[in-house]
């Protein structure tokens, strides 16, 4: 193997590992705390990408606002004093036909995903918490929710593929004659930063400690006075925001379409099981390992064989370590 190939594989592994890590850490957090698998997690990636696109791109909200801006300008011309107040507003609306940019798009995506995550918890999960068979019921309700969101987005935004603007524009980075796109570089750098923020939140904030407490022993969490029924939706919100960030990054790399996130969800499940259920460090290490296995098998064997190699690795690891790489023993 040439050195260039190795650099390409490593860069690819870091990019896909980052995307898996963002997605799988949310899944793992929800599993650890609520003991449920959220099958709508992939749809949240899609929601993140679409909401960022809607605010940032000129085809989104900016386009929808143009007729309103025009009518405000038109009506201001024939109404006296009020009109002179309305005119700047109308002109401002007309001036944003290029969209609000990602500086507003990304925060909006975070907000949207948090909100959708909360609504999802209230509608699809909360009614079943503590009931027998809840984990199985929630698999079905979240699959239903994912399908609802995918089709809803298709109805609202239409079937045409969309793409987010690249945050950094410019020629790709050259490392040992291998070209790495700036978007990829950004993902490689921003993901560990995001995960570090997640770590700080879970380790040092009161709510973060409470999330871990509920995950480790919910009976005892009740006894120290934690409002456990508030921690569940909080966990969903945090996990949804992570999925949304993943969507924003994916949307800058590939096309945005209603079914995006589905394939990533599958790989994220592999990562969560591979790294050890409920173990966040395991999940993150697992994400990068899976990313590396995927990229190297795609390069060495064939892209279409990558999933086969992945699942084979997963099965072999589970034979020797049934709880995954870093899954703890049952106490």
């Amino acid at each position: 193997m040439t050195l260039e190939a190795l650099v390409a594989i490593i860069a690819g592994a870091l990019v896909s590992g980052s995307l898996y890590a963002l997605m799988a850490s949310g899944l793992s957090l929800v599993w650890g705390t609520v003991r449920m698998f959220n099958f709508a997690h992939g749809a949240l990636v899609m929601v993140g990408a679409y909401s960022a696109w809607y605010v940032s791109n000129r085809g989104g909200i900016a386009k929808a606002l143009q007729p309103i801006g025009k009518s405000i300008v038109a009506s201001s011309e024939d109404s006296g004093a009020l009109g002179s107040l309305l005119l700047p507003l109308g002109e401002w609306i007309l001036s944003i036909k290029g969209g609000f940019g990602l500086a507003l798009g990304v925060p909006f995506a975070i907000l949207c995903c948090g909100l959708v995550g909360y609504i999802m918890y209230v509608l699809l999960v909360k009614p079943f918490v503590g009931k027998p068979g809840a984990d199985l019921i929630v698999i079905i309700t979240t699959i239903a929710g994912a399908s609802f969101m995918q089709n809803g987005v298709q109805v609202i935004f239409g079937p045409r593929y969309k793409q987010l603007d690249r945050i950094l524009k410019g020629p790709p980075l050259q490392i040992l004659e291998t070209a790495i796109g700036l978007q990829e570089v950004l993902i490689i750098i921003l993901t560990p930063l995001t995960l570090f923020l997640l770590h700080l939140f879970l380790k040092h904030s009161k709510l973060g400690l409470a999330i871990r407490a509920v995950a480790q022993n919910d009976d005892f969490a009740h006894l120290v006075g934690i409002n456990v029924s508030q921690i569940y939706p909080l966990t969903f919100v945090v996990s949804s925001i992570l999925a949304g960030l993943c969507g924003v990054m994916l949307g800058g790399l590939f096309f945005i379409l209603p079914t995006m996130g589905a394939q990533e969800l599958l790989f994220a499940f592999v990562v969560v099981v591979f790294g050890g259920l409920g173990s966040l460090p395991g999940t993150i290490v697992g994400a990068y390992v899976i990313g590396f296995i995927r990229e190297s098998s795609a390069y060495i064997i064939d892209l279409y064989w990558a999933p086969v190699v992945l699942f084979a690795t997963l099965i072999i690891v589970l034979i020797f370590r049934p709880r995954g790489l870093m899954g703890g023993e049952d106490s």
Binding site: R212, A213, Q216, N217, V224, G328
Partner: peptide, 14 residues
């Protein structure tokens, strides 16, 4: 009945 994967300090904080 403790939070097994947290430190003594974190348990007491909680």
């Amino acid at each position: 009945q403790l939070f097994p994967q947290m430190t003594v300090q974190e348990n007491l904080t909680l």
